[in-house]
Design a protein around this nucleic acid. Structure first.
Length: 926
DNA sequence: ACCGCCGGGTGCC
DNA sequence: ACCGCCGGGTGCC
């Protein structure tokens, strides 16, 4: 049973886990980077564009005007509408009678009729060339037999207005100005009441950006409603006591799964159901989503709550039926094993292993040997008709966290079947999946599987429940993983996310669509009834969004209160800045490198080639940052920076390109947390362009997709081509032999001295305190190992180059409270990803600042989270009069920006460019 | 459709 | 009458 030791068990003493890792998962090779990258393969991205260009640019769309027309051919179709109901106009270029044909559909998508041909002839061109979006409302005459009127609104960007007006004029039509107060068509005057359509208005009550922002902030705040404050205990299979706010969440989730309420904006009228946004009505009761969005802040226990939900609400509030692990079970499994002559499944082995251990410990007596009698009853439990399995989809980075949490929170006396659907040998048999209690997989696997149409086991199973963890990963409606997620089958649908709205309301659509809320699954209805009214600041728009959100989401922040007490009482967190002064020699080296770099960079400025030399500049900055830490850090990189002299002149463009790309690789491989100029976050999967700029792979593919065929680099406007992109594995993964620069004698540095001084003082004052020593540079961490050993510190280390198994060991070791367990953990900034729990530490020493303050904060939160018992003190070491001080200034600016940037739109490419240039100036004191 | 349009039947008052 | 007028047949795109 060697495989079981490779499981990442929190408690090694427990041996085999209670979940069944089925075939293929036992080697746990999912963290091999090659797998990861290939599952994101190049070829996936361009195909994403197959519905490109259809999305209306909400931000800048204005209403050109309205036009009355008629819908004909009603008697040939079944789709019916109400007076004042919204209708969709859809081009039908393949209509055999008229290539200009325009279909009219009701909210349900049923065809109502066609636009009369003369008008269709005018619309066809406008719609096909996407000059305007045309929307319709049937003002009256909905019950007509042959034709009915339709009031059309034309929306588009200002610069297309004239073309649209011209096009209409050519066919003899003229736009009437927008109608006063009736912009969204929900209140057309009924009946043939004459000429009352008139007068434009842009927004009855236009909110300022500021107001919008604060309204957004309030969106998720309200939770005073009763249905969100009831509490519910978890089933006995939940092995952890839930906190009050988690019991509330459980009660809310269970009630959402079991209730039969109407979805938001639907009303029951005499004998039909009525949608108050679109005025659509139907006799069939619209399904409400049996789920919603759990949007609690990080650290409040969304994972635990979800596990509790799975175990507690199988059907109508009854718990998931699982086997209690008893002696009978052991012999039953054992007998089956013998009967087959030794062949067995991994899940059985897991069980047997565990039971055998219990038996050996004397908890099983040798009495119940009539196992055959029990076979029947055990099998019965699993022969339920309805779907049983819950699918959980999460980013790769939190996969192991889920497994840890199962391990922790599922009571060990029960056998819950969990299948980790990951790795190249994952089962292709849907029935293997549907027999599980829980199937865990990642967005990449989901998308990859979906790519091979029709043959994705995940998409052939009818799930009891689908949970999308970090649900904001599907906010891009065109991404493959979003489409893959939307196409999963199962009635109970949940989204877990800490950041439900990241940049704008737009991000919500995929989530809402995933939840299958009628009629928002169709982008047009979402857009017309919610997104546009909100972004244009129309009165009532925000109200709608608010009541929608309120009815389907639960969100508590770290400061929310339950019964007057904060949901989470986190200890205080203090950040201290410790200035470090370089020694004379260090200063000399630093200063000379700085002068050399500054000269080169100011030359780039005067030549106007700053962005072309971006890699060079990052290189200079990197070197300075490294010098602040330790002189040996940039030794291996020094030779490659000699280009700063004029030697570049006699190189071919090809060679020049190559050196630049190599430079960029070097910067990235140093561990430095560089950022992506598209998403403005830390790089995820860095790729280097031909012009030697770095971006996240998904970001740059999105740029290429949306700008094709002539995409340009967002930083320098040079041409971009997929085949020129170079992937660059993040940090240490390529550098496993780090730290062994044995040809060099070890020396200390000012920063190391400062750290050691602080550590020794800490050990003297509180010998049991544990701390994290964090740096972006793993080589620096290696250098720090030396004095730690010399001063007798027990320490452990966690960085990106370590295999998953080693990481888990390091974490367990550090978290242990046993005497003699390590008090120091050397942690690379980026290894401190989300989900990692290092609450044993109450001190953090940040050795070098990151560009992105969010990356630092995320790292601090590894210990400042649920379970932290002490106040957390963070010490940042910053070298005086250095690039580090300038970095701090930029960080502060970014913090301010982030705090106010909620509803403001993304900066444009040129703004990003300018910001970058200004940053460079500030960094090198130009 | 209690319309418009088409095309055949028809033709002083 | 190579017209007007009548009334039946007919009807989305």
């Amino acid at each position: 049973l060697g495989w079981s030791s490779s499981l990442s068990l929190k408690d090694p003493a427990r041996g085999c886990s209670q979940y069944n890792i089925c075939r293929g998962e036992r080697n746990y090779s999912w963290f091999s980077s090659s797998d990861f990258y290939s599952s994101l393969g190049l070829e996936d991205f361009p195909s994403v564009g197959d519905i490109s260009g259809t999305e209306e640019d909400t931000e800048s769309a204005i209403l050109y005007g309205t036009l009355r027309g008629s819908v004909v051919g009603l008697r040939y179709y079944t789709g019916i509408v109400n007076n004042n109901e919204m209708v969709a106009l859809q081009r039908e270029p393949n209509n055999p009678y008229d290539k200009n044909a325009v279909r009219v559909n009701n909210v349900n998508g049923d065809q109502v009729g066609h636009i009369k041909k003369e008008l269709a002839a005018a619309l066809a061109g406008i719609m096909d060339s996407k000059l305007a979006v045309v929307e319709g409302v049937v003002p009256y005459g909905a019950k007509n037999v042959f034709t009915m009127p339709v009031q059309m609104s034309f929306w588009g960007r200002e610069e297309n207005r004239e073309a649209v007006v011209d096009q209409l004029k050519k066919h003899g039509f003229k736009l009437a100005p927008p109608l006063k107060g009736n912009r969204f068509g929900s209140k057309w005057i009924s009946g043939r009441a004459g000429p009352s359509y008139s007068a434009p208005v842009h927004a009855a009550v236009q909110l300022t950006t500021e107001q919008l922002k604060s309204e957004f902030d309030k969106l998720f705040e309200d939770l005073k409603e009763d249905d969100k404050t009831c509490e519910m205990e978890g089933a006995e299979t939940v092995g952890t006591l839930l906190l009050p706010h988690q019991k509330q969440a459980l009660a809310w989730m269970v009630s959402r799964e079991n209730s039969n309420d109407l979805p938001p904006f639907w009303e029951e009228r005499s004998n039909f159901y009525y949608n108050i946004l679109t005025n659509f009505a139907e006799e069939k009761r619209p399904e409400n989503v049996r789920g919603g969005i759990l949007a609690d802040d990080m650290g409040l226990g969304k994972t635990l709550t979800t596990i509790a939900l799975i175990l507690t609400n199988f059907q109508d509030g009854k718990p998931l039926p699982v086997e209690r692990i008893t002696n009978d079970k052991f012999f039953y499994v054992f007998a089956k094993y013998l009967k087959r002559g030794g062949e067995t499944t991994v899940s059985e082995l897991t069980l047997m292993c565990r039971l055998l251990r219990q038996w050996l410990q004397g908890t099983i007596r040798f009495l119940n040997f009539y196992f055959a009698l029990n076979v029947q009853s055990v099998e019965k439990k699993y022969s339920d008709d309805g779907p049983r399995a819950t699918l959980i989809v999460c980013p790769l980075s939190v996969l192991s966290n889920w497994i840890d949490q199962f391990e922790q929170h599922i009571h060990q006396d029960f056998n819950v079947n969990i299948y980790v659907y990951y790795g190249s040998d994952r089962s292709k048999d849907p029935s293997v999946l549907s027999e599980q209690d829980i199937v865990l997989t990642t967005y990449n696997i989901l998308a990859t599987d979906y790519g091979m149409r029709g043959d994705s086991p995940l998409h052939r199973v009818k799930w009891l429940r689908i949970v999308l963890d970090e649900g904001h990963t599907i906010r891009n409606p065109n991404a493959q993983q979003t489409k893959a997620a939307l196409n999963l089958e199962g009635h109970r649908r949940w989204v877990l996310t800490g950041t439900p709205i990241q940049n704008s309301v737009k991000d919500l659509w995929s989530l809402i669509s995933f939840l299958k809320l009628k009629p928002f699954t169709d982008r047009e209805w979402w857009h017309r009834t919610i997104q546009r009214p909100v972004t244009m600041g129309t009165a009532g728009g925000l109200g709608r969004l608010q009541s929608l959100i309120r009815s389907i989401t639960l969100r508590r922040t770290k400061t929310s209160k339950v019964k007057g007490k904060p949901v989470l009482e986190l200890p205080e967190r203090k950040v201290l800045i410790q200035h470090v002064t370089l020694t004379e020699e260090e200063r000399q080296v630093y200063q000379s490198v700085k002068e050399e770099g500054k000269a080169a960079i100011s030359r780039f400025f005067s030549e106007g080639t700053v962005l072309a030399h971006y890699a060079d500049i990052l290189g200079v900055l990197l070197r300075l940052r490294q010098l602040c830490c330790h002189p040996h850090l940039c030794v291996n990189t020094s030779s490659s920076f000699s280009y700063l002299s004029v030697s570049a002149d006699n190189k071919t463009p090809e060679e020049l390109h190559e050196t630049l790309v190599n430079k960029m690789k070097l910067v990235l491989s140093s561990g430095s947390d560089e950022e992506c100029a598209v998403c403005l976050e830390s790089l995820t999967v860095p790729v280097i362009t031909r012009c030697a700029h770095v971006f996240c792979k998904p970001c740059i593919f999105e740029v290429i997709r949306s700008e094709q065929p002539n995409a340009k680099c967002p930083l320098c406007r040079n041409g971009l081509r997929v085949e020129h992109l170079v992937e660059c594995p993040l940090e240490e993964e390529i550098d496993s032999s780090n730290g062994k620069k044995s040809d060099q004698e070890w020396i200390s540095s000012s920063k190391i001295n400062a750290l050691m001084h602080a550590l020794i003082e800490l050990r003297r004052d509180s010998p049991n305190a544990k701390c994290l020593v964090v740096s972006q540079f793993t080589t620096f961490l290696s250098l720090i190992e030396n004095p730690l050993k010399e001063s007798g510190f027990a320490f452990t280390r966690l960085d990106g180059s370590m295999a998953q198994k080693k990481r888990v060991e390091a974490i367990q070791c550090f978290q242990s409270s046993q005497a003699g367990s390590p008090t120091v953990m050397l942690l690379s900034l980026k290894a401190g990803g989300v989900g990692l729990n290092l609450t044993a530490a109450s001190r953090v020493f940040l050795m070098d600042p990151a560009w992105n303050p969010a990356a630092e904060d995320q790292c601090f939160d590894r210990c400042h989270r649920l379970g932290q018992k002490h106040d957390v003190v963070i010490t940042k070491f910053i070298v005086k009069d250095s690039v580090e001080e300038n970095m701090m200034k930029i960080q502060n600016k970014k913090r301010e920006l982030a705090a106010g940037a909620f509803a403001t739109k993304k900066p444009s490419a040129s703004e990003v460019k300018q910001t970058k240039i200004n940053e460079i100036k500030a960094l090198i004191d130009l």
